[in-house]
Structures are given as C-alpha cells and as structure tokens.
C-alpha cells in the first residue's frame, strides 16, 4: 500500500531527460521528502502522482492501482495539492478557495463552506479572513489557505511542491510546525518537495536525496542521512562537511554543556551529555 514509483522515466520531446529509472516506495500515512536542487526532477516526480505529468515509461501506482488507468481530473480531485506561491484563485474569496475541491466534487455550497470553516481552524486561520480575497492576505496566510484547500476533500494523499518556499524564514518555521502538528493528527500520505535540507530533516519520515536527472543519491530517515551520508554528494548537500553541522560541547561553569558549531557559532545549551555506550563509566 502507499505510492509506488516503478522505473519511471520522463524524457521531453526535445530530448531532455528529467527523470530516469526512478523507483521508490512511499508508505501510507507517512511523509516522504524529495530533496534536491533545481533540475533534479523532484517536481516532475511529484506531478506524476496526480498525472500533471505522465511518465514516458514506467508506472506510478497508488495502493497498487496504476494511475495511468485513472481519469486525470477525477484523480486530481482526490489528491491534495499545495504549491509554492499558494496557487490560490485570486478572484475567489478565501472561503471559496478552500471549498473549491469540495465544490468540484459536487458537495453543496453550504456543506462545502462549513467544511472550509473547519479547515481554517485546523490550519490556524482567523475565521474573519474567510471573506477576504487572496491578494489581501500575507504570504504566510496565503500558504495556510493553500494547505487548507489541499486538505478540503479529506484526501489520503497530499502533494506539496515547495509550499513554504516563498515565505520568510520565521513564518516558514511556523508553517513547518503547523504541518507537523496537522500530520500528527491526520496521518496523510505526504510527498513533500523541497531544496531546503533543514525543512527536509524537520518534516520527513523518509528523505530521498536526488541528484540531477532524478538519480537517487540516498534514501533514509533523517537520522540515517545525517549519521551516515551515502556519499560525498549527500554529505555536501546536507552541509555535513561544512562547519555548520560539526558540533562541539564545552562544559559550563554553572553546570550543563554549551554547544556550538565548528565556526564557534553558539547553538544552545544541554543539561547533560549521555555516556557513550562504548565508554566505561
């Protein structure tokens, strides 16, 4: 169960190979982050799930059903999609934007709006914003609306294409926290595309590090990837070889340890450092 990429390839008519021989299993109710720089084919892979892009060869399966056999419009209406710059319809009020998918699915307006109000609460939006147009909201608020819209039809699958890429760092952290909270309640199958390593480490149950052309550099949990990067590419991409992730701890006068990175940048304080199992107490 879950989402299965089977040897997918995408070659465009001009000969550009966006993705080649990519295979991946995305388990149900977990979040998988596709991490890579631009041109690694991560968005192409994401869009294969809801048939915004059809693979040149290979197949994408949702719960063992090949999506190639599903009518694209119907498929998209049961998969949540959240994108960068929110992708909201500028001519629809917030409430109608959130209700869009329910309305497309034939839900009556009153019921769709009721559901939309619930979702505004879920994503932490003041209900006073319901009657605003997207252009009247801040970037962070727009992204929350985008997430609410993605959740509106209560889809099992949520596709997120750099959804927090265009908001400022503080708001981005807040949105990541919210998403983590929402996910702990709703347990969707999430595929999340980003080029931000910290975001990937925060949100991914599973991280797929991609090189150019959709080549998999490493698949693993955040811990596995930080502890044992598969190769130099991964280490470099994560910044593991830079001073940023090389941490050291120094004892403090009034107890505990002061942690900093190799550049001496202060990171925080820990009460105690656990004894290494290999060492004798």
């Amino acid at each position: 169960m879950g989402i299965e990429f089977q040897n997918v390839n995408k070659t465009y008519p001009d000969g550009t190979v966006a993705v080649d021989q990519f295979s991946l299993h995305v388990p149900s109710h977990t979040s998988t982050v596709l991490l890579g720089s631009s041109g690694c084919g991560k968005t192409t892979l994401l869009r294969m799930v809801n048939r915004m892009v059809d693979p040149s060869s290979g197949a994408v399966l949702i719960d063992d059903e090949d999506v190639a056999g599903v009518e694209p419009v119907a498929l998209r209406r049961r998969i949540g999609y959240v994108m960068q710059n929110s992708g909201l319809l500028p001519h629809r009020r917030v409430i109608d934007n959130i209700a869009t998918v329910s309305r497309l699915n034939g839900v009556a307006k009153a019921a769709a709006h009721r559901r939309a109000h619930e979702l505004m609460e879920t994503v932490g939006l003041d209900s006073a914003l319901a009657q605003r147009y997207p252009g009247q909201l801040s970037g962070g608020q727009q992204q929350r609306v985008g997430v609410a819209r993605g959740l509106a039809a209560d889809p099992n699958i949520l596709l997120m294409d750099e959804p927090f890429g265009a908001v400022d760092p503080l708001v981005r952290l807040e949105l990541q926290r919210e998403l983590t909270r929402i996910q702990s309640e709703l347990h969707k199958t999430i595929i999340f595309v980003t080029h931000d390593i910290d975001e990937a480490l925060t949100l991914g149950d599973q991280i797929v590090v991609l090189k150019k052309g959709g080549e998999v550099a490493q698949i693993g949990t955040p811990q596995q990837i930080v502890e044992s990067p598969a190769d130099d590419f991964v280490a470099q991409f994560l910044g593991l070889d830079s001073a940023r992730r090389t941490l050291s701890a120094a004892p403090r006068d009034d107890g505990g340890w002061f942690v900093s990175d190799a550049q001496g940048r202060p990171l925080g304080v820990v009460d105690s450092l656990p004894q290494h199992p290999g060492q004798n107490a």
Binding site: V73, R76, M83, G87, L89, V101, L104
Partner: peptide, 18 residues
C-alpha cells in the same frame, strides 16, 4: 492569465472547459 494559477486549478481538478 498567470500560469501558476492555471497550473494550480489544473492540479486541484478543474477540467479544461471548467
């Protein structure tokens, strides 16, 4: 018409005519 909006409406399940 903004390409992003067009893309987004396709992604959430608008048919071409709609």
């Amino acid at each position: 018409v903004d390409g992003g909006v067009r893309l987004a409406s396709t992604a959430v399940g608008y048919s071409a005519a709609l």
